[in-house]
Design a protein around this nucleic acid. Structure first.
Lengths: 342, 342
DNA sequence: TGAAAAACTTATCGCGCGTAAATTTTTGAT
DNA sequence: ATCAAAAATTTACGCGCGATAAGTTTTTCA
């Protein structure tokens, strides 16, 4: 369908469609800002010639680009990959160009990403920070220049909003379930968790157990970084060997830790499940994409991916459109996913 | 450290450092193209003022940008996340700006990515195609305009090179091992695999088994898309129920399928492992990041991430520098990872 | 010490587009 | 049909930088 004559710029395309360049420019900024008859002429010309505006020239002159930066802490975790996919799609639907970055667990890389993101002059940024490892000062400086909404992991008072999960509710939900159907759970976590969610979950666990008039039992294991499964397996093996768990029910701080802990149970020849003959019950939190395929399938709390991504994007767009000024904040409840592990 | 006076453009930065703009421009294109003393003056000025060239203005005028597109088929698979991380880091080290895109298993999205990538005028693109689902015509058209190197999954004769794994060798390696240590394996796969690697693996399996004077047994199950674990579990349960496997050893076409198959074995109450008391041995291919945490840990073939990413990037840079013309092609051998599942 | 080579400066153009201000066309109520 | 207001369009200018030519200064090295 495309004609021989190559269109080199908007000028040529404008004359090819019998209009002036600024009119065509207006069209590309907002197709509905030109008269219907004009719009039809342009779109007819677009069929014949496959012209697209040069994004570099466009972005050089526009005060605000249509770029959205999406930053996640660790893309090798499918949880973040899924979250990022959700968020990206919503940005595209809203007519923006999302670009995905992963800090790969490295604080220095996170700072580099912000620096290179600044050069892109994005309309806004959706950032799931590393958490404890994040360079607060660097993030703060970035947020001062670029409209940024945090998600998944909060850095208090930073950015224009935070959207995440109600970790205390997560803990209540599963503690109640586990206590109702058997022994109350012990809590299994990393001693130095990478992000604040882990702390909120521990506090939620303790509060929920105490609310039932029981005594909490928190088992914290060594290990740093983002190799949660590894840490869960090694720490789990050690804790099991030491008899650290006061009950036969273990609530892991997150699913990846639980996956590692399941491996430790397997190695220790402990059958996992909710039957009387089973040695231990194991549960996690997050509804990690792989948790339904563990042996046994993992009982967990599902994060509300959909609401989190939707609200995060909406919050950002509110800010971009200059609607709000006060920092928004929303926490979403989780849903109990009952599987065979507990 | 940064001074009060904000630098707005290269002109101002040049005079602030006591040089002319063209000289500063030369520096940013290649720091070693200016005299050492000049370089020092610029770098000293860079310490005081945090000026960076406007990338939109730069890319508008440069014939070739420093952008590299990285396209993977399914980012929720940690295997691709890891591969992408490798590739990205190498691009950064070479002074380029990689941007990561995932087709999320969707052929239409893959085409969209290529179209939006074309607007970025990248110096080159590293692409792991969807495979069977890829729009050959669209990819071909893209490759004609942008230097592209394929990796992981080949589309014959497309792009300027392909870097991947020697799937036949993968199959030989593990068939020999499994046959040597017990019954020869059956081959478990999807009837309609998403990419050509699966076919190469099946062929390699058949050839390897026949070379041992044995009879191959291929079990192909229904299911489309990228939910391999799901397909492995459902197809595996069905195949096990039907007694489709002629031996007590199963080689899965890839680790994700194997993870699903392990779940099916668990549900069927079949103990997996290499002990005499175990009912079945299961193995996979890829050394998926999670395969060491399955129950039992999965015996598999490790892809040579490092070599694949290194060669893919190198091949692309050769092309960018205008060195080669002929399509390069390299296949890397896998390494047997012996774990407890087989 | 001096000439060639290298590096730098000045001057100018062009890239492809956004955008304010000026002008034209269209709309809608009389 | 008329005319002012609203909408659409055109004119004119600027964005920040790459690239190049011609002239000037600095460095290199015999």
């Amino acid at each position: 369908m495309a004609k021989e004559t190559k269109i080199r710029n908007m000028e040529e395309f404008a004359s090819a469609s019998g209009l002036s360049r600024p009119t065509v420019s207006k069209y590309f900024n907002d197709p509905h800002s030109v008269r219907a008859s004009t719009r039809e002429r342009i779109e007819k010309a677009l069929q014949e010639y496959d012209y697209r505006p040069n994004i570099y020239a466009v972005n050089q002159n526009r005060k605000l680009t249509k770029n959205i930066g999406v930053v996640v802490p660790y893309l090798a975790d499918p949880f973040f990959a899924e979250l990022a996919r959700n968020v990206e799609q919503r940005c595209i639907d809203a007519g923006f160009r999302p670009t995905l970055y992963s800090a790969h667990g490295d604080p220095a890389l996170e700072v580099e990403i912000l620096e290179s993101l600044r050069l892109l002059k994005p309309a806004g940024v959706l950032m799931a920070p590393l958490g404890r490892g994040s360079d607060r000062r660097a993030v703060e400086k970035f947020c001062a220049d670029v409209p940024t909404v945090l998600f998944d992991s909060d850095i208090p008072d930073l950015g224009l909003g935070f959207i995440g999960s109600d970790n205390a509710q997560f803990a209540r939900l599963i503690v109640d379930y586990l206590s109702r159907t058997g022994e109350p759970p012990c809590f299994f976590e990393m001693k130095k968790p990478v992000n604040p969610n882990a702390n909120k979950r521990r506090q939620g666990y303790i509060a929920a157990v105490e609310a039932l008039g029981l005594t909490p039992n928190v088992v914290s294991v060594d290990g740093e970084g983002w190799s949660f499964e590894q840490i869960g397996r090694e720490g789990g093996a050690k804790a099991l060997a030491e008899g650290a768990f006061s009950t036969r029910s273990v609530l892991c701080s997150n699913d990846r830790l639980a996956i590692g802990f399941l491996a430790a149970c397997y190695e220790a020849d402990l059958s996992v499940g909710m039957k009387d003959s089973d040695a231990i019950r194991v549960s996690g939190m997050d509804d990690h994409p792989f948790s339904r395929f563990t042996c046994p399938p993992l009982t967990t709390i599902a994060q509300d991916y959909d609401s989190i991504s939707r609200y995060a994007v909406e919050a950002l767009f509110h800010v971009i459109e200059g609607a709000d000024t006060k920092r928004s904040r929303a926490l979403f409840e989780g849903r109990l996913i009952m599987r065979q592990s507990a």
